[in-house]
Design a protein around this nucleic acid. Structure first.
Lengths: 110, 110
DNA sequence: GGTTAATACATAAGAGAATTATGCATAAGA
DNA sequence: TCTTATGCATAATTCTCTTATGTATTAACC
């Protein structure tokens, strides 16, 4: 598990990007996907994830559909057009940030 | 200027690394060095920098010497042996984090 | 000679983003 | 049957940083 401080500020970027790649996901699925992609190094906590999803929905970046599997409810999230723009922006920002950090730390990243 | 949230958790790493590279620096000098290396994209605030320096000193990672230039006091910081270990650890952590993020975001970084 | 900007340190109050804790409920596996 | 996994949600707390404030010296401009 990574030192969690570094993760701060990356949650939105992560959520938006995996949603873009997968198309349509529910909360728990997102945590598992990120866990897998990160080799168990990034474990999203529910206390951070759900408020983030709600916020992005409220801002019009995500839309939801509810599905009932058996008696269990799943809330699927997908990107709105605005959300699509935001992903690009966030990912670009992150890449630019890494580039800058590479200069400051004088290391090759990637 | 980068979105400041991404910067969270990187302050110690940045401070330690520039100190390692320069050998001996005072607070204001660190802010200017980072400003230069980052092309004005990372502007360390004093409210964050000084408490961090004090903390690292209290933990035995940094040592200080005070110098008086004219009537102005400068507090020079340099790494202790423990501090040297910490830099390596922090930089490695950061590189590992970036690698992980590359996988999660499915992008080439660096 | 006077004003502004830069240099140089420091700390306190407040904001923001996450962790931790808690709560509820269903389904699967041992 | 009991534990683990699945699935959502929110409140309290913690941590880190920004913003604001305070003090003081030096250089640059007009």
């Amino acid at each position: 598990m990574h030192s969690p401080e570094l993760l701060k500020g990356t949650l939105q970027t992560i959520v938006l990007k995996v949603l873009k790649d997968q198309g349509r996901m529910y909360g728990y699925e997102i945590t598992q996907r990120v866990k897998d992609l990160s080799d168990d190094r990034i474990l999203l906590t529910e206390g951070a994830l759900y408020p983030t999803l709600h916020k992005l929905e409220a801002e019009g970046m995500l839309r939801t559909e509810t599905e009932t599997i058996g008696k269990r409810v799943r809330k699927y999230y997908s990107l709105t057009p605005q959300g699509r723009s935001l992903v690009k922006e966030r990912v670009s920002e992150f890449i630019a940030f890494i580039k800058t950090m590479g200069n400051v730390l004088q290391v090759e990243l990637g």
